[in-house]
Design a protein around this nucleic acid. Structure first.
Lengths: 183, 183
DNA sequence: TGGTACATGTAACATGTTACATGATTAG
DNA sequence: CTAATCATGTAACATGTTACATGTACCA
């Protein structure tokens, strides 16, 4: 049996909480793992039919609006458990902005500053979004005593990284000013 | 004319400094942009033959060991300039470890700690590597007065992010301990 | 009754990964 | 002379992206 890829495994992970249609899965993935894992609707349907062939999920009765709920099978649960207990794959590192900087000698005058300003703004927005979300989690956690640690942990990862990005943007002018930093 | 992808554009960027063979390009890419952009040897040869067809690079005389130097053409330079002046693409966010955490309820006992320890170590190693590299750059910069700002800037990005990662690893136990952090 | 959100899916293509096959040159 | 490194390339496949086609149900 072919081993799972991270995207397929994530869908199985989401299906542990109960049957979901392809559409539901896209929504759930966006909400639960969308901050650090992207998948498209197209991929979801592809993985679902593949996993159906492999017996990892099974199709339920078609509901209203052609809704087709998938549920995880025992084989699916087994495959998922194997996958999750393996070593996580290496992080993907793909930062187009750093390519722009690497080759910034070829930029039109003023263009670098323009790009940096725009990029900094999107990072600042993301940070705000994460902080607001984390704040809501903590608030509800205090109210009902059931803090969603897992969600909070992944959010904190995003927060740390966005803070790092902003700090970097802010030290950039100094780096480019030509003064060798004291050691 | 089809527009460039970031990988092809990077190769053109590297070719601005003079003709390079496919092999050279793999090495150069690894050294210059490998910290935040991955490409395989296979991709390099594919992009080179595509760009040759499109007239963006041209093949020189075969040298020793079947060495085939490619040089950038005027069309290549034009395509590159257009590409680099465009908005950088969105960052890729793919963090398998966060999937592991999201679904950590399904981990075998003790497995989460094991994984976190291993992951933290690889981040710590990367941080050390980046710091050492940045230190060398700064040292040479002081000696000959020509500090490589661009290289240093991209390294600092990596350093900031690895520091963020380590700080996150270190706050994790507290997050999981169940105490709602004070606001 | 008409627009919006729900819902499924395919097609075509781009990009990325892994494995393999082949030969040239150099260093020990 | 032989192992390592240099060097090119193909094949097969996996994954990701974009665009399109189709139809359903709700709600204003």
């Amino acid at each position: 049996m072919r081993s799972l890829n991270a995207t397929a495994a994530s869908l199985l992970g989401l299906l542990h909480d109960g049957p979901l249609s392809g559409w539901d899965l896209v929504e759930a993935a966006q909400a639960r793992i969308g901050n650090y894992w992207t998948l498209t609707q197209s991929q979801v349907y592809r993985e679902l039919s593949r996993m159906t062939d492999d017996g990892l999920v099974a199709l339920g009765e078609t509901g209203p609006r052609e809704r087709k709920p998938y549920r995880i099978t025992d084989a699916g649960r087994a495959a998922f458990t194997t996958w999750i207990n393996g070593d996580p794959a290496r992080e993907q590192i793909r930062v187009p902005l750093l390519l722009t900087i690497q080759f910034s000698a070829h930029l039109a005058p003023g263009r670098l500053e323009e790009i940096l300003t725009a990029e900094r703004a999107t990072h600042a927005e993301r940070l705000e979004k994460y902080r607001a979300h984390a704040g809501r989690l903590e608030l509800y956690g205090e109210l009902d005593g059931k803090l969603d640690h897992v969600r909070l942990a992944t959010l904190r990862f995003g927060i740390r990284h966005e803070e790092a990005a902003l700090a970097w943007f802010d030290e950039l002018p100094e780096l480019f000013s030509g003064t060798t930093p004291p050691r």
